[in-house]
Design a protein around this nucleic acid. Sequence first.
DNA 1: AATAAAACAATTATTTGCAATTTTCAAGCA
DNA 2: TGCTTGAAAATTGCAAATAATTGTTTTATT
Lengths: 219, 219
Amino acid sequence: MIESFNIERRQIHEQIYENLKNAILNGQIKPGQKLSQDELAKSFGTSRMPIRDALRLLQSDQLVETLPNKGFTVVEFSEEKLKDTFFFRSILEREAVKLAKGRLTSQDIENLDFLVAKMDECIDQGNLTEMPQLNHEFHLTIYNAIPSQKMLETIKMLWEVFPRYAMFSTNENAIASQTKHKGIIEAIKEDNYDLAAQLMEKHIQMTNVWPNIIQKEGI
Amino acid sequence: MIESFNIERRQIHEQIYENLKNAILNGQIKPGQKLSQDELAKSFGTSRMPIRDALRLLQSDQLVETLPNKGFTVVEFSEEKLKDTFFFRSILEREAVKLAKGRLTSQDIENLDFLVAKMDECIDQGNLTEMPQLNHEFHLTIYNAIPSQKMLETIKMLWEVFPRYAMFSTNENAIASQTKHKGIIEAIKEDNYDLAAQLMEKHIQMTNVWPNIIQKEGI
DNA sequence: AATAAAACAATTATTTGCAATTTTCAAGCA
DNA sequence: TGCTTGAAAATTGCAAATAATTGTTTTATT
């Protein structure tokens, strides 16, 4: 008897990988924290091998660091690294907007409108918890249209370098972002992708304000 | 008695990682080839554990693929993937040249001159074996000046996606590349980085000619 | 002879155990 | 008190063993 149609059988290390990644990005595991193989093995109910597999992948993602015979720790977030990442993102995402020209469907643009409207709702209701996810979808809707898979992968990777909990900490940030989002949509609708790209670049650069993003006591 | 100043002790899996990576990039291990954990363990004289550590890192680098219960294989290079990579590179490296403005030292520019001269020598002597390394140094000399570490890392990563043995297969390629290299240096010396960037973009795009790069029988 | 079932072989995934290294912490010494 | 030393404890790195999965060949049945 067939038990299930779940084609994609998930290996233990894959599940651990995703669990740990989410835990780091959601801030349940804090920067600088030591990741003991034994402890993780116990809490996941496995041996240390799949833990190591997962940690090696996270190491490549630069979410954890390792020293010989010392083990793995969650990477610390420095102001320098943050500025670097946002600077690179501002360039990449500016170019991504340019590349989206002629490739965004009317369906996509409707979706952008929808997402911005939903974010406005969030702000009105004073509930910012869903903002990061909606914001992420907004940006990805544009970038998904670009013709380079590698470029898209790189952008996605850069979105997963800092913990999500650290974004959109204030209402002001959210409102300022929305202004830019609307400007970008408008420019896109007018087929003025150069303007849209410029706005995107500034939008990303603007987000790069250390005290607004990471509240030190939060870490 | 002090035994050694070798602070950075190299672990087995790191050595295996670099060995395998070089073997893949130099074409000693061919695309599509299966990487049996047992065989690798035997040939490296270790157990399978450090082999797995190394393979997981290579998996993140997208140099090998893995299927559950089937093991690891060296990734195949498709024309599509190659075009994608070179397209992305042409954008990144164009922007990198722009960012190098005001940051390249006279020492750097001297070095660029030196490298181009050396590549000319290679061509004159009909010995193209050193070309890939010199070409790599030429490009990296420029990119090392850019202010974003992440961007530099990304560019370096993209240079390590395809086997080195597949580059500069013909004399014509080398000569054409040199023309662009000289143009780029000239523009840089005139402080015309916009032109240099344009030339770089075209230079990378030009290299993206499938039959010239990968000779199918070579794989 | 064709097909299905079953045993077998090969390989990977995971667990377990051991050796080597680092950390901790208390005792000894200046 | 402050620094060094050294042994115990904890943890990692590696090796070897076991379990699970896949692919193939053999065997049995129709």
